[in-house]
Design a protein around this nucleic acid. Structure first.
Length: 432
RNA sequence: GGUGGGGUACCGAAGCGGUCAAACGGGGCAGACUGUAAAUCUGCUGGCAUAGCCUUCGGAGGUUCGAAUCCUCCCCCCACCA
C-alpha cells in the first residue's frame, strides 16, 4: 500500500469522490493519525452481493489503499434477525444453512476487491454468527442491554416509522437488531482493535449506537463514517436492470449483462458513478466529464466506467468476453459471423436448444420459439411484439407474425439468433 | 364490541345491472428520433384462437335473459367510538 502520506488519504479521498455523507466527531483526525482497523457489515440475504453493496465494498477498498485494515463482517448472525432499517415490512427469516452458504459466496466476491493476502494491512473477514450464536442471553441482557434506552431506540427513524406508521409494525426481533449490531462493533473493538465502522447513510443510527456502547463498556472512543445513498437521476432504484437486480456473481449476472448495465448508465449519472465505483483519479474523471459534453455519442465515459468496474470484478477474461459480445451485438454485423464465433460471443447471452427435427418440414413457429425461450410471456405477447415491429431473427426484422422458422433460417445449421427490441437477445442452439 | 368507509388487472384509481376484458394515471414492453443516454412522440399491455371463445373485479352462494355493478353469509383492511 502507499507509504508516503498513508492514512490521511482516506477521508480526503472519500471527500474528493463525494463518497462522504457524514462522519462522527473526530473521525477524520482519528483516521489521519495512524493506521486503523475499519469494518463494514454485509447482509447475507442472498448468495451474492448486488450492486447496492458495491459502494460499501469500494469504501473498504479505499480504506485499505489508505493503509487501514479493512474487515468485512458477514452478518451470519444478524442475517438471521433482519435489519429494520429502510424496510417497511417485517423480514423473511433465513435458515442457518442459507446464511452460511451465502456468507461463503460473499467472501469469494470480496476477494476481487480487497487484498486478503500477505500485506501488513490484509483484509479480514469475520462472521458475527461466531460470537452471536453462543451468546448467553442473560449475560447479554446484563452487559449490553443494560446500556440501551428503549426511549432512544423508539425515537429512531427506522423504528418510529414501523411503530407509528400505517405499516406492518415491528417485531421484538427486528427491534433488537440495533443491539446486536452494536455488540458486533464492541466485539470487533475487543478482538480486532477495530475503532471505525463505515456503512450506508441508513446505518447511521446503528453505527452511533455501537459507538455509544463501546464508550460505556470500554470507556473508549470509536468512530463512524457513512456513505451517501446512491440515486439514479431518473428516480429508478440504482442497481436494477430490465432483468432485475444486478448481482456480482457471474452465475447470476453474466459479465456481459454486468458490463451492459454500466454502458447503459445515463449521462446525468455517469460522472458520479465514475467517482463512486472506479479508482480513476479525479482529474481523469474530469476529462471524461468534458467528453460527455463535447462528444456524447462516443459514450467515452460510459465505456471507461464499464471497463473499469467489469475488469475489477470479472478480470480481463470476463471483460474481454463481455466486450466481444457487445461489439458483435451493437457494433458489427451478427449475420456475418460464423457459427464458431457466435457460440463464443454468445456464451454470455441467454440461450436454449431446439432439435433439428423440429425445424424440418413446415418448421417451428417463431411465436412458439419466443414463448419457450422466455422472450415473450405468452403467445399473444409474442404476436404483439412481432406486429409492433420489435422482433428480429438473425438481426433481420420479422414482418409476419405467422412466420415459421426452418433449417433454412439457421446460421451454419447451428444457431438461430432471436432478438426482441434493441437489447434482448436469445440464442437458440440446434441440437441433433 | 359498536358505527361508518373500503377490498377492481403489476401499482394507484374510475366504474355501481347490459354498449366492461373493464375509463384514466403510473409502471412495463415495442416503434420513431438518437448516442446501446435523457427527453419527446406513437402503439401495445388477461389467455387462446383471430373479430369468436375461455378465465378475471376479496371468498362462497343467490336474484336476473344478463352482474364488477343488486341480495345473503363469510374473510380481510381503514377511520371514529367503546
Amino acid at each position: 500500500m502507499t507509504t508516503t502520506r498513508p492514512q490521511s488519504r482516506l477521508v480526503d479521498e472519500l471527500q474528493r469522490r463525494t463518497l462522504l455523507h457524514d462522519l462522527t466527531e473526530g473521525a477524520a483526525d482519528h483516521l489521519a493519525e495512524a493506521p486503523r482497523t475499519v469494518y463494514i457489515g454485509f447482509d447475507p440475504t442472498a448468495a451474492s452481493l448486488h450492486l447496492g453493496s458495491l459502494l460499501p465494498v469500494m469504501g473498504l477498498l479505499h480504506a485499505q489503499r489508505a493503509g487501514h485494515t479493512p474487515i468485512a463482517l458477514v452478518g451470519g448472525g444478524t442475517g438471521l434477525i433482519g435489519d429494520p432499517s429502510g424496510k417497511t415490512a417485517e423480514r423473511q427469516l433465513l435458515s442457518k444453512e442459507d446464511v452460511a452458504r451465502n456468507a461463503d459466496g460473499i467472501r469469494a466476491q470480496l476477494e476481487h476487491f480487497l487484498d486478503f493476502g500477505s500485506v501488513s494491512n490484509a483484509a479480514r473477514m469475520r462472521n458475527n454468527l461466531d460470537w452471536l450464536s453462543g451468546l448467553p442471553l442473560v449475560d447479554f441482557m446484563r452487559d449490553t442491554g443494560k446500556h440501551f434506552s428503549v426511549n432512544q431506540m423508539l425515537a429512531k427513524e427506522s423504528v418510529k416509522r414501523r411503530v407509528e406508521g400505517d405499516e406492518a409494525g415491528i417485531s421484538f426481533t427486528e427491534f433488537s437488531y440495533a443491539l446486536l449490531q452494536s455488540y458486533d462493533f464492541l466485539e470487533l473493538y475487543r478482538t480486532e482493535g477495530c475503532t471505525v465502522q463505515m456503512g450506508g447513510s441508513d446505518q447511521w443510527g446503528n453505527i452511533t449506537a455501537g459507538i455509544d456502547l463501546i464508550r460505556r463498556v470500554e470507556g473508549a472512543r470509536a468512530f463512524g463514517v457513512v456513505f451517501p445513498l446512491i440515486t439514479q437521476s431518473s428516480g429508478v432504484k440504482f442497481g436494477k436492470s430490465e432483468a432485475g437486480a444486478v448481482w456480482l456473481d457471474p452465475e447470476m449476472t453474466s459479465p456481459f449483462r454486468f458490463y451492459q448495465y454500466w454502458i447503459n448508465v445515463e449521462d446525468a449519472d455517469v460522472v458520479r458513478y465514475l467517482r463512486f465505483f472506479t479508482l480513476l483519479e479525479v482529474d481523469q474523471i474530469a476529462d471524461l466529464a468534458d467528453k460527455v459534453e463535447s462528444e456524447p455519442h462516443a459514450r467515452t465515459a460510459q465505456r471507461a466506467l464499464a471497463d473499469d468496474v467489469t475488469r475489477r470484478l470479472h478480470g480481463e477474461t470476463g471483460l474481454a468476453s463481455a466486450k466481444a459480445a457487445t461489439q458483435a451485438l451493437f457494433g458489427g454485423d451478427v449475420a456475418g459471423l460464423g457459427a464458431d464465433e457466435i457460440s463464443d460471443v454468445f456464451a454470455d447471452v441467454p440461450s436454449s436448444e431446439v432439435t433439428r427435427d423440429a425445424l424440418g418440414g413446415e418448421g417451428k413457429s417463431l411465436i412458439d420459439l419466443m414463448t419457450e425461450s422466455g422472450l415473450a410471456s405468452s403467445k399473444g405477447d409474442a404476436r404483439r411484439s412481432i406486429d409492433g415491429g420489435g422482433v428480429y431473427v438473425n438481426n433481420v426484422r420479422v414482418e409476419d407474425a405467422a412466420r415459421a422458422l426452418t433449417t433454412e433460417d439457421t446460421i451454419d445449421g447451428r444457431f438461430l439468433l432471436i432478438r426482441k427490441g434493441k437489447k434482448q437477445y436469445h440464442l437458440v442452439a440446434i441440437r441433433g
